[in-house]
Design a protein around this nucleic acid. Structure first.
Lengths: 165, 165
DNA sequence: GTGTATGCAAACAATTTGCACGGAC
DNA sequence: GTCCGTGCAAATTGTTTGCATACAC
């Protein structure tokens, strides 16, 4: 998400402030988050749903700063602290994944019903490609047996450069 | 590397200060680094060889702070700035690899003639296991063809927890 | 009404940067 | 003798924390 043209918009977050979101985010996602909040004794604040909203309206990777900028620029402003806070909750209930590519900034992306995938980072441009290879699942299965562990999740980043013919 | 008992010691760095290292580091490694420095117009300073020395005397992962502490505690003290600097050079000439596990601190490890491997991070303890699965090479080969890229390197981190029977 | 979530600003921690000196070349 | 590399300290940047207020419950 560059700070320029990309969406991360479609925020009807303002309505969420009173109605608790019947917005564009996938119904199931909101329900999952609600259930998670309930079951863990967290409050259902409008900020939390506005953030969920914003994240699920966006395709691709984003960082906290961009999320902050987009929400600020639009009708619903939340503090960075709340963003970090809420994103942690979303990670905890498996609605968001966190990536640490090369840089210092952590990148995030929604992950509900998004096909599990890994990343190719192009060294020159920083461009990120996605791919999905079933062999990674096989590797995980092998490891579970080999080390007697239960795999929670994984990160596979391939660093490459475009072939110049 | 915990700051406590682990080596990262075996520093005869002091000798390097005058003699430019004929120490315990593998001869080939030093030569590779020397060649790299020459070819890229970098100076062969005693600090650089002392740091290479220190890193290659250590088994496993370390971070800059630990490296700094160990070198300070011993005969050869260098500034953090120089450590960051030199480690970058070592990464550039493929003598060191950098990892970004979960935490904020970057971890490093030597990689010359070290079997290419990946990591399992145990969620509970933070313990890091190493493994090597040939299927990852196959995945890389597939990707090279699929995206018409040249893979430079990769990071595969598996997050897991011990099975409780 | 209670106590958690928020917003703000200050605190932190890892890394980077600017500058003056020293030493590799 | 040049000018790159070093050490130091200050600056930067991403993230966390402490505290007073607000609002979900």
């Amino acid at each position: 998400m560059s700070t320029s043209e990309t969406p991360l918009s479609r925020k009807n977050a303002s309505t969420a402030a009173k109605k608790i979101s019947t917005g564009p985010i996938h119904e199931q996602v909101r329900e999952l988050f609600e259930a998670y909040l309930e079951q863990n004794g967290h409050r259902k604040t409008p900020e939390r749903f506005a953030i969920l909203n914003e994240i699920y309206a966006y395709e691709g990777h984003f960082d906290i700063e961009a999320l902050f900028a987009h929400m600020s620029a639009n009708e619903y402003r939340v503090s960075r602290a709340t963003l970090y806070n809420t994103v942690d909750l979303l990670i905890d209930c498996n609605l968001v994944r966190k990536h640490q590519f090369g840089d210092k900034v952590a990148q995030y992306e929604k992950c509900y019903r998004v096909k599990q995938h890994d990343h190719v980072i192009l060294a020159d441009t920083g461009e990120v490609l996605e791919f999905c290879d079933p062999r990674i699942q096989q590797i995980k299965a092998t490891l579970e047996e080999l080390f007697d562990i239960e795999v929670l999740h994984h990160n596979l980043n391939i660093y490459a450069r475009k072939r110049t013919h």
